[in-house]
Amino acid sequence: MKNNNFVKDLRFRQEIINQKLSMIFVDNDILSKASKYAIINGGKRLRPILLIEFAKLFSKVNNYIYDFALALELIHNYSLVHDDLPSMDNDDYRRGNLTVHKKFGEDIAILVGDNLLNSSYEILFNLISQEENKDNIIEASKYLANKAGKNGMIEGQILDISNDFTNSEEILNMYNKKTCALIMAACKCGAILGNGNNKEVKLAEEFGHALGLSFQIQDDILDYEEDKKIGKVTFANYTSKENAEKVLVEYSNKAINILNEFKEDTSFLNDLVKYLINRTI
Results as ranks from 00 to 15, higher is better:
Val273Phe: 02
Lys188Arg: 12
Gln218Met: 07
Arg47Leu: 11
Asp227Gly: 09
Gln218Trp: 00
Glu205Gln: 04
Leu31Cys: 00
Asn278Leu: 09
Val247Tyr: 06
Phe235Lys: 04
Val112His: 05
Ser87Cys: 09
Leu80Arg: 12
Leu159Ser: 07
Val273Pro: 07
Asn173Pro: 03
Phe235Pro: 03
Val112Lys: 01
Lys134Leu: 00
Ala236Thr: 10
Asp223Ala: 11
Phe165Ile: 02
Ile217Glu: 08
His101Pro: 07
Ala109Ser: 04
Met153Gln: 01
Tyr93Cys: 03
Ala185Glu: 15
Ser162Val: 03
Met23Val: 13
Lys102His: 06
Ile123Gly: 07
Arg45His: 06
Ser141Ala: 12
Val61Glu: 06
Ile230Asn: 14
Asn237Cys: 06
Ser252Ile: 04
Tyr275Cys: 07
Met153Tyr: 02
Gly96Cys: 08
Glu205Thr: 01
Ala185Asp: 15
Glu155Gln: 01
Ile256Asp: 08
Glu225Gln: 08
Ala255Gly: 00
Thr99Gly: 00
Cys189Phe: 01
Thr280Cys: 07
Leu276Glu: 12
Ala145Thr: 13
Ala140Asn: 04
Val112Gln: 01
Tyr66Glu: 15
Glu225Asp: 14
Asn237Leu: 04
Leu182Asp: 08
Leu46Lys: 15
Asp220Pro: 05
Ile16Pro: 10
Phe268Met: 08
Ser267Asp: 00
Asn176Lys: 05
Ile75Met: 02
Val249Leu: 08
Ile230Lys: 14
Tyr93Trp: 04
Asn151Gly: 11
Asn260Pro: 04
Phe54Thr: 10
Leu85Cys: 06
Glu200Arg: 11
Glu205Asn: 05
Asn136Asp: 13
Tyr224Lys: 11
Phe207Thr: 04
Leu116Ile: 07
Gly231Thr: 14
Leu70Cys: 11
Phe58Ser: 02
Gly156Met: 05
Asn237Lys: 04
Leu21Thr: 07
Leu213Met: 10
Lys20Ile: 10
Phe165Glu: 01
Thr179Ala: 04
Val81Asn: 14
Leu116Gly: 03
Phe104Leu: 09
Leu144His: 01
Val112Phe: 06
Gly194His: 06
Ala55Ile: 12
Asn115Arg: 04
His82Pro: 12
Asp9Arg: 06
Asn28Thr: 13
Asn197Arg: 09
Phe68Tyr: 13
Lys229Leu: 10
Asn163Gln: 00
Glu242Thr: 10
His76Asp: 09
Ile128Thr: 04
Glu225Trp: 00
Ala148Arg: 12
Ile138Gly: 09
Gln216His: 03
Tyr121Trp: 15
Leu269Trp: 02
Asp271Cys: 09
Lys44Trp: 13
